[in-house]
Design a protein around this nucleic acid. Sequence first.
DNA 1: TGTTAGCACTCTATAAAGTTGAGTGCTAAT
DNA 2: ATTAGCACTCAACTTTATAGAGTGCTAACA
Lengths: 345, 345
Amino acid sequence: MDLDDRKLKILQAVIKNYLETGEPVGSRTISKYTDLNLSSATIRNEMADLEELGYIIQPHTSAGRIPTDKGYRLYVDTLMQEKVDEVNNMRDDLLEKADRMENLLQQVAKMLAVNTNYATMVTTPKYRSRKIKFIQLTDVDEYQVLAVIVLEGNIVKNRMFRSDVALVKEDVLKLNLALNTFLQGLDIEEINIGLVQKLKSQVGSYQELVSEILDAIATAIQEEGDIRVYTSGATNILKYPELSDMNKALDILSTLENKEELTQFVENGDIQPDEKRGIQVYIGDENKVDSMKDCSVVTATYEIEEGIYGKVGIIGPKRMDYERVVGTLQNMMGQLDDIFKNKKP
Amino acid sequence: MDLDDRKLKILQAVIKNYLETGEPVGSRTISKYTDLNLSSATIRNEMADLEELGYIIQPHTSAGRIPTDKGYRLYVDTLMQEKVDEVNNMRDDLLEKADRMENLLQQVAKMLAVNTNYATMVTTPKYRSRKIKFIQLTDVDEYQVLAVIVLEGNIVKNRMFRSDVALVKEDVLKLNLALNTFLQGLDIEEINIGLVQKLKSQVGSYQELVSEILDAIATAIQEEGDIRVYTSGATNILKYPELSDMNKALDILSTLENKEELTQFVENGDIQPDEKRGIQVYIGDENKVDSMKDCSVVTATYEIEEGIYGKVGIIGPKRMDYERVVGTLQNMMGQLDDIFKNKKP
DNA sequence: TGTTAGCACTCTATAAAGTTGAGTGCTAAT
DNA sequence: ATTAGCACTCAACTTTATAGAGTGCTAACA
């Protein structure tokens, strides 16, 4: 038995209808809905075939059909035509509100959530290496000193330190110089005990302070290596009856709240910024995150520079409006590209 | 009719039992549960009185009684005995994980959520004024400059700027000096147009850069004025059947997700760091936030310095375990006090 | 006079039985 | 190959019956 053109059309009609209504679709509906001019009986026969082929299924004996994961997959891969998204230029809005990377990403999550009515997530970009660009020490008052650490990629971290001994202005300058000569351009792995000893031998009575600063640098670099995740619109999940069952909802919302598991989407995703801007669709069981086996997740990849990339994801019911979601994501990726090219942040 | 001792005891028993079970409490239960040695019939008479007085209510004619808001209020105000909280020293955990204020508060929210099984929120402290302590400009490369802005209270903000003209090292130093002489010690209101003009006249070809920096300062100050809110354990709400009704849950969770409304608890709360560490209980309708009329919210106030304070809140069902929650909060406030006194952050 | 046993009554929650309607599969006719 | 027609199925809804928890009231009791 083969998937001829008519079967495809019927399958498409079934899925489209189901996406809209969320109810099982019957043969009579298809018979009227399509322009195939076939009676419900014929549709019934075809649908029986489609079921045998595993594209659709009956939730119970005398009900209409709903798509299986395999059905959705076929639909997403070949049947759907992306909607050109009407989401008008979000770019200006974005730029206006977002002066820093962090805010920008949070804004992206929010806008997508509002636009799609699904839950969204955005991860911070994943950097390959974290080298120290420079360190700037400034004395704030007699006993406090501010350390600003700038990493490659202009990531800025700052931290305040308290010294037990009163600080002398010139000493702070010297310390600053010493730190920079020793550490500039180094990656975290390169800061070893030998180096630390050498550095300490140069700083006289400030050994403790130097220790603290080195610790801070280590955590700063570490921190930036971690991928953070912003989510938005988590509660949208509750708007879809098939997911708002207490246990499922609890599972999904917890995952979105805790965020740790979400980083999987960054780790696992193939990086293929092809013509589709690296858009990937995970349907039901295809999800690696357990609590999302009843959802679909659509992710897209944004790239700041060669090799520095993050993910934007949309989480919704399996019957999400894939056409629209993919369209919206493509659009958003375009906007982000623009922003990162004339990079202001 | 009066609230004699026996009535109080019965009321207390009813509430306690209801807090545990969530089911309406009948007279027979009380008759056995308490050591009053009264028959169910007597209890019934007393309960009828208590109902007339407005402390308890029957959800329907032939059911047991549940507390009214008024009943809860009496209970919280006079009847309950705070449980000494067994939550063992959270302080070390806190300090370990939290090197910065932001992380610390996030940790507090998380720990409380895990400990209580309710939803929690923590607000950032509310500052009175925001004066500029100093500004530090550093040239990152030929076209980029990093501005670190330190506000009173050692709040550090940083931002990267891109200049259209190549930067000269000495100019950056001059600019730095000029900015500091003009702006040091000023509050945002004091930066007026006259001042800006004067400043600009001194900086030659860097006018645009100065404009951007001033903008950044303005937003930085503004930003710090805003109260941010961290939440945790929002999904715990779904664990209580009386709140996990779709619409209520959606409302509550949305409020927790959007956070804006939560700042109300800071604005409105009387500041009364009395012997109870400013713990306040809002029961049902007493809540100013609409979506929480079916919840109770318990807030506590932490103070960093005289007049600089924030709120910690626990959001749960009306039948939350007030004794435990108040105990836990008191404990947590103690830990926070300790931390802020030897203030490391 | 306060307390209690006893009983009729009320009302929810749950189960059981009946009804409806959408949708199917199969067969026979076109 | 297509379709009209019909018997059959099954979830969803409605109705009816049943059980049980809890009450209010009355009359008896200490």
